[in-house]
């Protein structure tokens, strides 16, 4: 990345990045996987890899992001899914099987599935 030389350039960059984010969110399913020490210990890295694999396989436009702690230790690994036009939903205790259910039933068909944390 280039050096940001002035406040104006920082502001311009922010506007650009905000736009880029909004455009990406309007087109893609956003998958955020909590990836702090504790989440990794419960297997969130494998969950993230499996998401990447499966979303590709299913050809769903998506952006998979690793984040910090969501604070939900009791339900790690946790994943937040945002389908364009919908509110974000957090799923807990996600394993490979649940990844498949989330993709097939929640993302593709819009059905309610188990494991949602309110």
């Amino acid at each position: 990345m280039k050096k940001i030389e002035s406040i104006d350039k920082l502001n311009a960059l922010r506007t650009y990045l905000e736009n880029e984010k909004a455009v990406s969110e309007s087109k893609n399913v956003i998958v955020k996987v909590a990836m702090s020490t504790c989440s990794i210990a419960t297997g969130s890295e494998q969950v993230m890899e499996y998401f990447q694999e499966q979303m590709k396989l299913e050809a769903i436009g998506s952006k998979i992001i690793k984040t910090g702690c969501m604070g939900l230790c009791h339900s790690e690994p946790t994943v937040e899914i945002t389908v364009p036009g919908k509110e974000p939903v957090i799923f807990g205790k996600v394993d490979q099987k649940r990844v498949e259910i989330i993709i097939k039933d929640y993302i593709k068909l819009g059905k309610e599935v188990d494991g949602v944390i309110n």
């Binding site: 955020k32 909590a34 992001i65 690793k66 984040t67 910090g68 702690c69 969501m70 604070g71 946790t78 937040e80």
Partner: peptide, 8 residues
């Protein structure tokens, strides 16, 4: 921002 952005 915790759990919302990529920290890296």
């Amino acid at each position: 921002n915790c759990g919302k952005i990529d920290p890296e």
